[in-house]
Amino acid sequence: MTLILSTWVKFFFLFAPFFVVSMFLSLTKGATSQQRGKTANRAVMAAFLTSLILFFFGTPLFEVLGITLDSFRIGAGILLFLSAISLVREGVRVNAEVPDDQRDDISVVPLAIPTIIGPATIGTILVYGAELEGTAVLEGLAGMVLALVCLLILLHLASRLERLLGNTGLNILSKVTGLILAAMASEIVLSGLQGFISRSGL
C-alpha cells in the first residue's frame, strides 16, 4: 500500500495535472460540457495505453540498446529537470482555440501526447517501470492508474476549477508542480549517479 501511494503521488505530479487542465481548457474553448467530457475520456485513455506500453517496455528496451538503467536514470532525470524549469519559469501560456471540425483530433494529439505524455514523462515512466520487480510491478501500475484517474476527474471538473482558481491560480499550481518535479528529477539523477559510481567501484 505504501508503494502504491508513493507511486500515485509521483505519477500525479509527473503528469503535471494543472498544466494539463489549463491546456485542456484552452483547446476545448467553446466546446459543450458533453464534448469536453468525451475529449477528456479519450485523452486519458490514450495516455493510459501509452503509459502501459512504456511501463513494461523499459527493461527490454535497455537490454536491446545496451543501455544501463543508471545511465537512463541520469538522462531521464535531466530531461525531467528541464521540463520542471520550463513549468516554473513560464507557467501556463496557452491560447489555442480549435475549430469544431478538428475537436475530435485533439484528444490524442496534442492533449494525450505530448501534453500528458511528453518526452520527460516517457523517460521517467521507462525508468520507474524498469526499477520495479515482482509484485511491486503491480503496485506501481496501480499507482499510475490512480494518478490517471485523478487527472481524468480534474479534467471533468476543469470548468469549475477555472471559475474557482482562475488562470492565475492554475499558473501558481503549475509552478508548484514544477518545483516538485525538479525535486523528483534530482532524486532520479542522484540515484543514477550513485548506481554508476557503485558499479564502477569509485
Rank of each mutant, 00 (worst) to 15 (best):
F57H: 02
L82P: 00
R36K: 14
A76W: 10
Q35C: 08
L61C: 08
G77S: 05
R73L: 00
R73S: 05
F72G: 00
V44N: 00
A40T: 02
E90S: 15
F57C: 09
L80F: 04
L65N: 01
R36F: 10
F62R: 03
E90W: 12
Q34G: 11
T32M: 07
S51N: 00
A43T: 08
G58R: 03
A43V: 08
V44F: 03
I74E: 07
F56N: 14
A46K: 04
T32Q: 04
Q34F: 12
K29M: 12
S33L: 13
A47Q: 01
E63D: 12
M45G: 12
L82D: 01
G75D: 03
T50E: 06
G37P: 03
A43Y: 05
R89P: 00
Q34M: 12
G75I: 05
M45W: 13
S71T: 13
T68S: 15
S83Q: 13
K38E: 15
F55V: 01
F81S: 05
L82C: 04
S33V: 14
L54R: 08
T68A: 04
L49V: 14
S71M: 14
L82M: 10
F81L: 11
T50S: 11
S86K: 14
S83R: 13
R89H: 06
E63Q: 15
M45N: 12
G30H: 06
E90P: 05
L65W: 07
K29N: 13
I85V: 08
G30L: 06
T39E: 08
V64N: 03
S51K: 02
V44T: 03
